[in-house]
């Protein structure tokens, strides 16, 4: 073709951070981003937002419904539910994010390795089946016994529970992608397995992976409640959304607000992460036009 373009033209600085620009224009990403940032800030600055102490008990004001002084009402020990939800965000968001990241990393690695190195597939997948069958609670108890009941052991225990699912999802999409001709094209040119994984398999498995991780985030927050209840992980009275709900269970009918507001917080956080994940998925896929 006649219009010869010089190399200089091609080297002209490309717009930087194209992904960030596209993210900024993505409508659901923006909404999700705002939700997650607001929740995170609320968790960090909890002491500035509320003057109550999340754990001190006042028998005089038990079971107050939501009102001007106690926005979300008070619980059976007279603690302010709003304040507890604020402080609870610290624990719950850390656990949700921690589990999503840890199980995402390990699960993706296991899934991709299974798909690319077929000789390891049977072994890795057997291992995953084993993990899946192993009750997360028992594992969590074991870890808590070994590492002490803290957030760390809780995150590890829950991650282990979600790794097999994530691995299966990544493996399934990688198996489809690796049959596509562009992978063969790379192999004809002598591409190493590492390059095929990094340049071809991973980017094309991103969509299902991100969707899965937003689910993991939500499940982990809920599961933490169950485990807290059994005394694994950071023990009450330190609040988390999960254990506020767990503690309010007995008064669900009469004092609905004790469960309702932390439940709302979990839904909101999940929604935020979901929108964030959708945004990332869309923006990382150049075929999709970004909704603005």
């Amino acid at each position: 073709m006649a219009d010869a373009t010089t190399a200089g033209e091609l080297l002209a600085p490309r717009r930087r951070f194209p992904v960030l620009r596209r993210l900024a224009r993505h409508r659901s990403f923006r909404i999700g981003f705002v939700i997650v940032v607001v929740l995170t800030l609320a968790a960090i600055f909890a002491p500035l937002i509320s003057s109550f102490d999340p754990t001190s008990m006042r028998a005089r004001i038990r079971f107050r419904p939501p009102q001007a002084a106690y926005w979300f009402g008070t619980d059976n020990f007279g603690r302010d539910v709003f304040t507890r939800c604020l402080y609870g965000a610290r624990l719950s968001l850390t656990i949700g994010l921690g589990v999503a990241v840890l199980s995402g990393l390990v699960g993706t690695a296991a899934g991709i390795i299974s798909a690319q190195f077929r000789q390891l597939d049977a072994m890795i997948m057997r291992l995953m089946d084993g993990l899946m069958a192993f009750p997360a609670i028992i594992l969590a108890i074991g870890l808590a016994a070994a590492m002490g009941p803290n957030i760390g052991s809780l995150i590890v225990a829950l991650s282990v529970a979600y790794i097999p699912r994530t691995a299966r999802i990544v493996r399934a999409s990688a198996l489809v992608v690796r049959e596509l001709e562009f992978v063969d094209a790379a192999r004809v040119s002598g591409a190493s397995s590492l390059r095929i994984i990094w340049k071809h398999l991973l980017p094309n498995c991103m969509g299902p992976l991100l969707v899965q991780l937003t689910f993991v985030f939500a499940y982990a927050i809920l599961a933490e409640a169950a485990l807290s209840f059994l005394g694994i992980g950071p023990p009450p009275p330190a609040p988390s959304w999960g254990n506020i709900i767990a503690e309010g269970r007995d008064q669900a009918v009469d004092s609905w607000w004790i469960m309702f507001f932390p439940g709302l917080a979990i839904s909101l956080a999940t929604l935020g992460m979901n929108l964030l994940g959708d945004g990332l998925r869309d923006v990382l896929d150049p075929r999709l036009k970004v909704e603005t």
Partner: peptide, 11 residues
């Protein structure tokens, strides 16, 4: 390759 869709990585 044959398939003009499958032979290039969409990303």
């Amino acid at each position: 390759f044959q398939d003009p869709n499958g032979s290039l990585n969409p990303r």
